[in-house]
């Protein structure tokens, strides 16, 4: 193994990691407020990707406008799911919400196949996004750079939003204790819906980025990224936004290095490795690297 090869693989890992981070942020956001593992998160990613495709295809809109459309689409879907499914069962055990999110996921996936057909579709992006930028030994595509930058910008923006704005503080109060927050005059329904809107909008944007990067989208594309984002969020500490990003990068790097540094015959165990790592992290660091609550184990 040579140094350029190692650098190559590290860059691969970082880019894949920022992809996971992007998906995981939204996931952690929702978990942080409502303590719900939202299994349908990956399917909202799919919706975002198809919304992006529709926006690109119907009119030759500039990329920033497409992002805006995708954000809105994701937020709307997230709010609808929250209002119709999760709000009526608020107060039930955690597991209830989890099962409901599985059901939502099955509904979305089957609807997607019924309406869109199972065929993968090409996702073309403007040529300038595919251009190469040189950084000495490595060159990176504009879209990959955008993904990395977007992940970092979003962490900073979301962390400061939650920490410093009035609404953000209200959201954190909601996350701490519904009843006390209500007594403080916070409309917790609105806060939870907002968390879903933001989290789902982020998933949708992640879908757009996913499609832009790989050039192909399909109705079931979100399933595996959704699961892996969950793993990333757990590694970082579910509920922590910066933890999600950290977890995403760690997972991306670990996955690429697992494939890249071990013999090719082991590449087939890639997903087994990811979930094995998940179980290991849960056991050693039940609250993840940056998590703080302690309800994960006895």
């Amino acid at each position: 193994m040579t140094l350029p090869y190692l650098i190559d693989q590290l860059v691969n890992g970082l880019i894949l990691g920022s992809m996971y981070a992007l998906v995981a942020i939204g996931f952690s956001m929702i978990y942080g407020i409502v303590r719900l593992i939202n299994f349908a998160h990956g399917d909202i990613l799919t919706i975002g990707a198809f919304a992006g495709l529709a926006a690109f295809a119907s009119a030759d809109l500039p990329f920033p406008v497409v992002i805006l459309i995708v954000l809105v689409a994701g937020a709307v879907v997230g709010m609808v799911i929250e209002r119709t499914t999760f709000r009526p069962m608020r107060g039930s055990p955690q597991v209830t919400g989890f099962i409901a999110s599985l059901a939502v996921s099955i509904i979305l996936e089957n609807l997607a196949i019924m309406i869109l057909s199972a065929q993968p579709r090409t996702f073309r992006i403007p040529a300038y996004l595919n251009a190469l930028v040189d950084f000495g030994p490595v060159s990176i595509r504009v879209i990959d750079l955008m993904i990395v930058v977007l992940a970092i910008v979003l962490v900073i923006a979301l962390t400061s939003f939650v920490r410093f704005t009035k609404v953000g503080i209200a959201m954190r109060a909601t996350a701490e204790n519904y009843d006390v927050a209500r007594l403080m005059g916070i409309n917790i329904n609105r806060m939870i819906m907002l968390a879903f809107a933001i989290g789902s909008a982020l998933a949708a944007v992640a879908g757009l980025m996913w499609g832009s990067k790989y050039g192909q989208i399909s109705p079931l594309m979100g399933v595996l990224p959704g699961l892996k984002a969950f793993v990333a969020a757990v590694i970082g500490g579910v509920g922590s936004i910066s933890g999600a990003v950290l977890g995403g990068y760690i997972l991306g790097l670990a996955e690429v290095l697992f494939v890249g540094l071990l013999p090719p015959a082991l590449s087939g165990y890639r997903n087994a490795f990811v979930f094995g790592a998940l179980i290991l992290v849960l056991l050693v660091l039940p609250n993840g690297l940056l998590g703080r609550n302690t309800e994960t184990r006895a």
């Binding site: 055990p93 699961l227 998940l278 179980i279 056991l283 039940p286 309800e295 994960t296 184990r297 006895a298």
Partner: peptide, 13 residues
Amino acid sequence: RLRGHYLAVATLG
């Protein structure tokens, strides 16, 4: 040793 949905996801893994 894991609880609630953490166990669910570990067994899913």
